[in-house]
């Protein structure tokens, strides 16, 4: 209902500012809740494929060119590399764990990722069209080791080989120009999980 003009004239001044205290109280509660739910790390995803079941029929193309079928098997002692038997004359030597100095200056017994990278890069040089690598592991090998192994075989780094683990850990991926963008040079980007019996 509208007020009479005389009432309006005689009325005392109102404090026209909003009372923000309840809104502040809500914000003070909401912000810690959201901060608690907020992740301060950048999440990325690593694509992998599961092995296809069934043998299928061999195509003519398969007959002409055998796939490399490069496989890295992670054991508790180190890495084993295998490939299509018809494409090699002698078996690959295993890459054993060794004591190395990491980028924090600590002496650690760890998987020899620099050597694995060099060996896989050498394979890529021999078979530049190959994009797929199989990765298998013993049942107890933790995911963090598998994730680092995928990192070692996925992209090419600035150097062909790294003697020290500390240098390898800090190495950047080699980049090429794709139009206006710079993209990493792929090594074996298609990772397929295999099961070691």
């Amino acid at each position: 209902m509208s007020r009479k003009p005389s009432e309006r004239r005689n009325a005392e001044d109102f404090d026209d500012e909003l009372d923000l205290t309840p809104i502040m109280s809500i914000l003070v509660i909401l912000i810690p809740v959201l901060l608690f739910a907020f992740s301060f790390f950048e999440v990325r995803v690593q694509a992998v494929s599961s092995p296809r079941l069934g043998t299928g029929k061999a195509s003519k193309k398969d007959d002409e060119k055998k796939p490399l079928n490069l496989t890295v098997i992670i054991t508790s002692k180190g890495f084993k590399l295998t490939q299509q038997a018809e494409l090699t004359t002698e078996p690959e030597k295993p890459i054993f764990k060794r004591i190395m100095t990491d980028s924090d200056g600590k002496e650690v017994e760890d998987y020899d990722y620099p050597t694995l990278y060099s060996r896989v890069l050498a394979k890529k040089r021999q078979y530049p069209d190959e994009k797929t690598i199989n990765i298998g592991a013993e049942p107890h090998i933790p995911w963090k080791v598998i994730a680092r192994t995928i990192d070692a075989v996925r992209v090419e780094l600035e150097k062909e080989s790294y003697e020290k683990l500390a240098l390898y850990e800090k190495a950047e991926a080699k980049e090429k120009k794709d139009g206006e963008l710079k993209v990493p040079v792929d090594l074996f980007p298609a990772v397929v999980f295999t099961v070691v019996e």
Partner: peptide, 13 residues
């Protein structure tokens, strides 16, 4: 059929 593993970007290689 299309699988991805979540990882945190950064840290040591």
């Amino acid at each position: 059929s299309d699988l991805r593993f979540a990882v945190f970007k950064g840290g040591k290689r």
